[in-house]
Design a protein around this nucleic acid. Structure first.
Length: 576
RNA sequence: GGGCCUGUAGCCUAGACUGGAUAGGGCGAUAGCCUCCUAAGCUAUAGAUCGCGGGUUCGAAUCCCGCCAGGUCCGCCA
């Protein structure tokens, strides 16, 4: 890795090590980042040395600072209380970072290829109706994780685990084949998922009221498990339009899933049977009325019922059983498994993990759980008509964005151009608003907040990018081989230092599975760029060397903004 | 009844895993900045018992215990 900050950090640690061993102290060396830029670039707290040295941390800090030898990266060492603060050579950081960004362009920030495969499973919604906002975090978080891991140098495959076996699709299939279209409530959307969901809703209601319907459904499920070709075909035909509608919605927000893996695969290839056999032979297995379960109490599972059933009394399998077979298969395909699941899947996921241990899987997945998006009136529910579809949200975001563009640029831009910008801005705002909040936080959906286009929101970042593009478009100066020493203003230096951090940010977001680290970083870059924009006029600058250096900085910022937005699946408009 | 997650200004949120520098931001509010590269921007002011109570520590938003509130799960559903 030849990113300047990596090297600077390594060198600083080396200096520290030398100084500490010269003083005959011993401790682990971990650098921190000071809370403000003017305090230093790296900090070393001396609290942990105090008991060893039997001196006050402040004293130790002074001792260490005195015995540090400077090198080409570290220019100045200061103490502040118990901290030894290191100041890097700004010139070296600035010139190397600018050069690197311009050399690597759309690859800047991305990490070395790791030659490792990652499978990210996300969304995996039942194909019985359109995606709604309650679970909208799933595809967006999942896709962002995919992009982060790609940027971090992994080979990534995204997978959608497709329920084509269970009761949900059976209900849909029954509805499509037995209900009259006239009795299905019309949807305002033309999309096939919206047109089909009515069959599911009515069938679902009938199932509860009518035992005959309930029995017919059980027969469908049983036939599916037996691998009855005609039934599978029927089910496939029923859910396919819904799935296509879901794909369309995801595509609209820049999400494509690499592969759709049907549950039935694992029934057909008998791998579920292997799982069942292994689980039945486990010492945790019990039997109750011909049904089989694992008792998970020894694994720390608590609650009313610690029994995890994996075979029904009639011999059919359950969703979780097939999920185990799926994960067993996945574990063979990749080096790292990541799942994005709703918090309601926590127990099931744990059950699968335990079962995977019992059957001897190579690995278990790292799971990112997200909490639901609820409405101010409570949880979203299709049944109670309390639902905001993902498509509603997308449309509303774009509509609102269009209004904003028209308000600001209506006199200058063509309608087609404004529509193009509205699309980019609306979708960007949607994705950004989901990602900027940690997945485990509860979100209550409010239109005003989801459609907020100011401050810490995607348009702020896109606007910074558009500003940068606009400056570059108006200049004819050559931005190659600039003299980086012309960048002296603190707004310029701070901006370059932010750009230098990008690779470290990707690394951290990847290692900690936290997409929101990217949004926080991006917001900081855009903020810093806006300060630079205020303090350092580029085009009006008379001195050509300074102007060229600033232009190079603008271009570097544009590249970082674009690359980081790309990781978030957000388009970077040239104007807005 | 039990498990897991969440609780930071009027609202939203970072920081918590790995304890340490005056708890960062944003929205909203108030007051300013467009003869100057797009004002979706910038500057300033006000606003915080870090849910409550204990404990550990030189030091706690962060670790431990108890409690309160919200979410979620504890199905031969998916």
């Amino acid at each position: 890795m030849n990113y300047p900050l990596y090297e600077a950090e390594k060198e600083t640690i080396k200096l520290l090590k030398n100084a500490i061993s010269k003083l005959k102290y011993k401790c682990e060396i971990k650098l921190e980042t000071p809370p403000q830029e003017d305090i230093g670039d790296f900090a070393f707290p001396c609290f942990n040395l105090a008991p060893i040295a039997k001196k006050s941390p402040n004293m130790i800090a002074k001792e260490i600072a005195k015995s540090i030898e400077k090198n080409k990266w570290v220019k100045k060492v200061e103490t502040k209380g118990a901290y030894v603060n290191f100041f890097l050579d700004d010139k070296a950081i600035v010139s190397q970072t600018l050069k690197l960004v311009h050399d690597k362009k759309n690859q800047y920030g991305y990490l070395d290829k790791k030659n490792k495969k990652v499978i990210v499973e996300h969304t995996s919604a039942n194909p019985n109706g359109p995606l709604h906002v309650g679970r909208a975090r799933n595809p967006i978080i999942g896709d962002t994780i995919v992009r982060i891991f790609k940027a971090a140098g992994y080979n990534v495959e995204s997978q959608f685990y497709l329920d084509d076996m269970g009761k949900q699709v059976a209900i849909l299939t029954w509805g499509v084949n037995n209900l009259d279209k006239k009795n299905i409530p019309k949807s305002e959307y033309d999309k096939p998922d919206h047109q089909t969901v009515g069959f599911y809703q009515i069938a679902s209601k009938l199932m509860k009221e009518d035992e005959k319907v309930s029995e017919e459904l059980a027969r469908i499920v049983k036939k599916l498990e037996e691998g009855d070709k005609k039934t599978i075909e029927l089910v496939h035909k029923a859910y396919n339009p819904v799935l296509n509608g879901m794909k369309e919605s995801m595509k609209h927000i820049n999400i494509t899933v690499d592969s759709y893996v049907p549950e039935s695969n694992f029934v057909k290839d008998k791998s579920v049977d292997v799982v069942i056999e292994k689980l039945k032979n486990s010492k945790y297995c019990g039997e109750e009325n011909n049904a089989f379960y694992l008792d998970l109490e020894p694994f720390g599972i608590q609650g009313r019922n610690t029994k995890f059933f994996f075979v029904r009394g009639d011999g059919t399998t359950l969703y979780a059983t097939r999920d185990i077979a799926y994960h067993l298969w996945k574990a063979e395909q990749a080096d790292i498994l990541i799942n994005v699941l709703g918090e309601d899947h926590k127990l099931e996921s744990r059950q699968v993990e335990i079962a995977l241990g019992i059957v001897g899987a190579k690995q278990t997945p790292h799971v990112i759980f997200y909490s639901f998006v609820s409405l101010p009136g409570g949880k979203m529910s299709t049944r109670r008509g309390l639902v905001v579809h993902l498509d509603d949200l997308i449309d509303e975001c774009i509509k609102r964005a269009y209004k904003e563009v028209k308000k600001r640029r209506g006199a200058e831009l063509t309608d087609a151009k404004m529509k193009e910008i509205a699309e980019i801005v609306g979708i960007g705002a949607l994705r950004y608003n989901i990602i900027k909040v940690q997945p485990e936080k509860d979100i209550v959906f409010k239109w005003e907040e989801a459609l907020n286009f100011e401050g810490n929101a995607a348009p702020f970042l896109q606007y910074a990018h558009a500003r940068a593009c606009s400056i570059l478009a108006k200049s004819k100066d050559d931005i190659k081989n600039v003299n980086a020493e012309m960048l002296k203003h603190s707004s310029e230096i701070q901006l370059v230092k932010k750009l230098a951090k990008f690779p470290l940010v990707i690394n951290e977001a990847c290692n900690s599975y936290k997409p929101h680290i990217i949004t926080t970083y991006l917001f900081n870059v855009a903020s810093q760029f806006n300060q630079f924009y205020r303090d350092c006029p580029v085009l009006p600058e008379k001195d050509i060397e300074t102007r060229r250096a600033r232009l190079a900085l603008v271009d570097a910022t544009r590249i970082v903004l674009k690359n980081a937005l790309e990781i978030l699946g957000i388009a970077a408009p040239k104007e807005m």
